[in-house]
């Protein structure tokens, strides 16, 4: 659990991994919990060529800057993202790595690492496009920024038009992500 009132998270990966969606889900869930939130995507030429990242701030008070030079958390879905963002993460912060695609370990010793095989888990669930849902499930379970319940609710409303089958698959993926973190804590 975090006790700081303003928390910044960077989500990063390549296009198609649902990186911006993860940020959007977190921001929406924060809003549902009546927290102050901002969501700032990378835009323009920066996103041409396949990389994507966004910054989400969740706070108990009005947010001054939506930019994160030193994020508390970083959710990194591929190796280039780790290379780009590792140095900026606040000392004592947490990086969440997609173990299936990040093939190097962080160099820093002053940050926590949560490494999750989100692609493998998603594949096992028969939902290969759900790796981002596995990750966000794990992320909120670990950080407690918002509740898993809020996330499940937000995801349902975001994908409202996609129907109940998608909703069930998303919920399962979110719960699996959370369960993976629980398993880490238990071990």
């Amino acid at each position: 659990m975090t006790t700081i009132s303003t928390t910044k998270t960077i989500f990063s990966g390549f296009g198609g991994q649902g990186v911006l969606m993860m940020g959007y889900v977190l921001a929406t869930s924060g809003m549902e919990e009546d927290k102050h939130v901002t969501y700032l995507p990378s835009y323009g030429a920066e996103v041409r060529g396949g990389t994507a990242n966004c910054t989400v701030t969740v706070s108990d008070e009005p947010i001054a800057s939506p930019v994160a030079s030193f994020p508390d958390f970083a959710v990194l879905m591929n190796t280039p993202s780790l290379i780009k963002f590792e140095s900026g993460v606040k000392s004592g912060g947490i990086v969440f790595l997609n173990r299936d695609l990040v093939d190097v370990r962080p160099k820093r010793r002053d940050i926590h690492v949560v490494s999750i095989p989100v692609n493998s888990i998603a594949k096992r669930l028969g939902n290969t496009r759900g790796a981002n849902m596995v990750m966000i499930g794990a992320f909120v379970q670990k950080t407690g920024l918002v509740s898993l319940k809020s996330v499940i609710k937000s995801v349902k409303s975001i994908f409202q038009k996609k129907g109940t089958k998608i909703h069930k698959m998303n919920t399962l993926a979110l719960k699996e992500g959370a369960a993976f973190v629980d398993g880490l804590l238990g071990s």
Binding site: A27, T38, Y39, P66
Partner: peptide, 10 residues
């Protein structure tokens, strides 16, 4: 500015 245009807020 770009931040006002791109940033999402409730």
């Amino acid at each position: 500015d770009g931040l006002m245009g791109q940033m999402m807020e409730p």
